[in-house]
Design a protein around this nucleic acid. Sequence first.
DNA 1: TTGTCTTGTGAATAATTCTTCACAGCGCAG
DNA 2: CTGCGCTGTGAAGAATTATTCACAAGACAA
Lengths: 218, 218
Amino acid sequence: MITEAIMVIDDDQDLRETIVEILENYDFSVIACATAEAALQAMKDDIPCIVLLDNMMPGMGGMALIPLLKKDYPGIKIIMITAFSTVDNAVEAMKSGADDYLAKPFKRDELLVAVRRALEKLKFSQQESEPCMDEALASLSNQIRRQILTILSTKGEMRFMDITRMLGIQDHTKVNFHLKNLKSNSLITQNREKAYRLTSQGKKIIDCLQLLSKRITP
Amino acid sequence: MITEAIMVIDDDQDLRETIVEILENYDFSVIACATAEAALQAMKDDIPCIVLLDNMMPGMGGMALIPLLKKDYPGIKIIMITAFSTVDNAVEAMKSGADDYLAKPFKRDELLVAVRRALEKLKFSQQESEPCMDEALASLSNQIRRQILTILSTKGEMRFMDITRMLGIQDHTKVNFHLKNLKSNSLITQNREKAYRLTSQGKKIIDCLQLLSKRITP
DNA sequence: TTGTCTTGTGAATAATTCTTCACAGCGCAG
DNA sequence: CTGCGCTGTGAAGAATTATTCACAAGACAA
């Protein structure tokens, strides 16, 4: 389950607890883990949105954890905590997917700035969580499919070959390919007699499309 | 210049004039030509939306004219007029791009039905004449580009590497590819200091996109 | 001057999308 | 029963789009 929690992964108990305390004082929900292994285990239940991650840890280090996290939880923003003497490691962590880093020792404000920056990035990454939008917009980028939606919007219902003929396309299998796309994206459906019609989602889409067309047509 | 005229191409003067008379009685604007060659010449000035075309004509016949018309004027709807004994030619004409056919001798109503059918198809083909829409929707089908539009909508202006970092993308050339697409489709522009911002068109697009997102998100 | 960062460029490569092909099964009319 | 039209299927091939790579030029600081 994806949560809004911030996960702190650091074997240094003092530092870990300090970070937890600061973040909780600012009303962030915090999960604390002493090892990378414990963190991976905890993520099976609750997936944080931000991970604060120390580089030097026994067992699996922070550097090794980053690719695992990015692979399994691509939405997580990762802030690497690094000692001043290992800044080159921080650069390398950035290259392998960390989103930001904090050099020890850091001030409370630096921590809060980094967290807020990560939250800001998360805000724009929310677009990634809209499979409906992705599919709808991918469907709409094709002209034949837009024409089909328009036809069905006007006519209400229509059968396969009628649509094909109205589109003026000779190769019916081409139309079938596009109808299948629209159907699998739930923009159109068929009744018992196989006539195609718009779904309610399809209707919303074509409405917005026509509104958009009016707005941007010179 | 694209017009709303119907062009009649037939070497048979009686038939040609009959068709012209019928169509003009129904308030259609008609251009009459006796040969394919004359028709091609006339189209340099006024491009009709529908062509009624006889198959058997001296010089270039109807069958040879179809591919030329479809290539140079893809939006034109072509109705092939064919004698009853050459229906197989009509089928072949359909295969090479004619949109409909009329078998001689035809009644006035048959002619009108065919013309209205072609006008109906034209109505749905109007979508083909919206390059702005095509490009905008193609741009929107890509997630990175949508994220860029959202970022600029919120922030107003932003420079290249700031956008790249906010997107959390390491490879700046990838972002450059997408920025170029948005720029060439006039959704974004740059000021003198190279900061990117939305065009007015881009603003309209992102508004509609957010409206659409609200409507179809479950 | 060198090194680094910013902001690109164009081409090769990879991935995705679209079109075409060859076929299939069903229903209906002759 | 055969032939034709309708409505598909899946895979191969073609086209388009996206990503990566190698590089470039300019600006700025040390």
